[in-house]
Design a binder for these strands. Structure first.
Lengths: 333, 333
DNA sequence: CTGTTAGCGCATTCAG
DNA sequence: CTGAATGCGCTAACAG
């Protein structure tokens, strides 16, 4: 059964291709009689419009390119869900690409997606460079950055207020009496890692605690690495009583290492995570963490993007949205 | 900067469109001199091929439709990662759609993806019906079912040996001395839930333990529901000493409920999960579970699909692959 | 209200 | 080795 085309339907209905097209797209200028006739033929014939042709002709594909760092990480998965739901609701499909935090893959993904003529991009940038994202901008393809942003270039973006998140977590620990707080950071080219560090520093400063370089460690987003690192750190006698981690995902690795070193949470060491992934509350020692509205972040980003795609944007300035995080206190502190 | 086309490049190079097309696609019949010239012009001009046009012309989109039940569930996320990696490696993009286990959404997704002319489908079917999947088959669009399969229709599929998984988990518990084993099942229209139940029953039978209907509960894949249900069950005095759950995801809900009811794992009640999602091993009481090769499942499914798309299929019969699971014993039993 | 014409960007005959 | 012509399936401008 090779696919039917408008021409086939037109022939069966004894009208022109144009008329069929009009009937199918609910355009005016078709008598309801011919329209009904066409529609019934379409229905019983099993005609399926070819969106490839439509996209080529109309110069819009109703498809969004979604470039995420790691779909198997529940943090990004939650964002992806928000994106997919929202896009679908507004009539768009998403082409999803994983970068594994590698800039080469991001670059490649951007290229292919431009070739496939996506109408816009949603990206959690790797941030090792931004040249290729700049090129998207220059091509005037709508674009929204998610969860991370660049200081150097202006773009639409939806981010978490990471400086505040870092501050809240740290200040809370300080108020619980902790003075030596280890921060397991993500890589600092990542804006969210950097800003959480800034929040951490500000909290220390406001409470007259001296910042110590050696209490900041990690600089990675890989749980496995952090687990190994943590085992080493415990042996270093750094004298910390609390740990703030870049993500819940990392906190899991940290806590496993700590437990294996026979330290008790929260008695020997308090742990605060970041993101509030679903699992955080289901742990045996539920994790105190900075709640981030991941689904909403995906949703808002998608809405901003589609608004721009469809020319509903107000003003010329990039649209940036910063979502406030919230500290969720559980049993790990 | 409106997009350049082959025509623009041809004009600049002083050759025909055809020649440019040939040069770009590494076809023979172009002198290396003109080819070099064209390539250098292409490079400096920033030409980007329009894959929409190419797809329309060639009747293939190099895009796969991926229809998953719930991308925010780490089990599906892991499969998705395997799919994306593999597809990307072989030059394909994926359009991802979530169904939330709702048949209506699956149906709608299938329709849109056919319209977008994906070259093939990877689907974890909701299984409340199969009419629309049948239609895909009738259209002769390549298709691979993942993690679940239908008895009623023949299709390519890659599944876990769920009967065996259910058996292994149950027999292990029996060998640990348990006789009253609660099975928190997924919905039984889902083939994997049904087969795990069958494995559970077979293990009981082989060990001369009477099967009891009331020890099978749940019939849902939602963690929240299971959590609530579990709290009720504990109060029912069902007298069970072990629980086998349909998924690690559900096990999390179950364990939380159990702990809140002051029962100890594994002393008061042993728990076995299914899937072995990454978190299972990072829990404070690491979870005994049936390991499923999720990434591989996605990978194999994608390879089978692309082989069929590209006509590399051997034989006419559907290609079905069953991956053996493995029991991973940890501290929850 | 309806049909004819043109063209989106590309790959592929077929002629030279 | 190269180019002119055709059409993938669709929508839009224009003419009736």
């Amino acid at each position: 059964m090779s696919d039917l085309t408008l021409r086939d339907i037109a022939k069966k209905a004894g009208v022109s291709i144009t008329t069929v097209s009009r009937a199918l797209n609910n355009k005016p200028d078709v008598s309801s009689k011919t329209k009904d006739k066409i529609l019934s033929i379409v229905k019983k014939s099993g005609y399926t419009p070819n969106l490839l042709a439509k996209s080529l002709r109309c110069q819009k594909s109703k498809t969004i390119g979604v470039v995420l760092a790691d779909i198997s990480n529940p943090f990004f998965a939650a964002i992806a869900k928000g994106i997919e739901d929202t896009a679908h609701k507004r009539g768009y499909s998403i082409i999803l690409v994983n970068t594994d935090e590698e800039y080469e893959k991001e670059k490649e993904a951007l290229r292919v997606l431009v070739e496939k003529r996506v109408d816009g991009f949603l990206i959690t940038p790797v941030q090792k460079e931004y040249k290729d994202i700049l090129r998207i901008k220059e091509r005037r393809i709508p674009l929204v950055l998610l969860a991370r942003h660049f200081d150097a270039i202006e773009t639409n973006s939806v981010v978490n207020d990471d400086e505040l998140g870092g501050f809240l977590a740290t200040e809370y620990l300080i108020q619980k009496g902790h003075k030596r707080i280890l921060y397991i950071s993500g890589p600092l080219y990542n804006s969210s890692a950097l800003e959480r560090l800034n929040g951490y520093k500000r909290a220390l400063k406001e409470h007259q605690i001296q910042f110590e370089e050696k209490l900041v460690r990690g600089y990675t987003a890989k749980m496995g690495k952090v687990y190994t690192l943590m085992k080493e750190i415990v042996k270093e006698k750094l004298n910390f009583t609390a740990i703030f981690t870049f993500s819940d995902f990392l906190a899991l690795g940290v806590m496993k290492a700590i437990r294996e070193e026979k330290l008790k949470i929260p008695d020997d060491v308090a742990v605060v995570g970041y993101d509030d992934i679903e699992f955080a509350s289901f742990l045996e020692t539920p994790l105190t963490t900075v709640h981030m509205r991941k689904y909403r972040l995906g949703m808002e980003g998608t809405n901003i993007l589609i608004d721009e795609i469809e020319g509903k944007k107000v003003g010329e300035k990039p649209n940036t949205l910063t979502i406030k995080p919230e500290l969720i206190v559980r049993k790990s502190t």
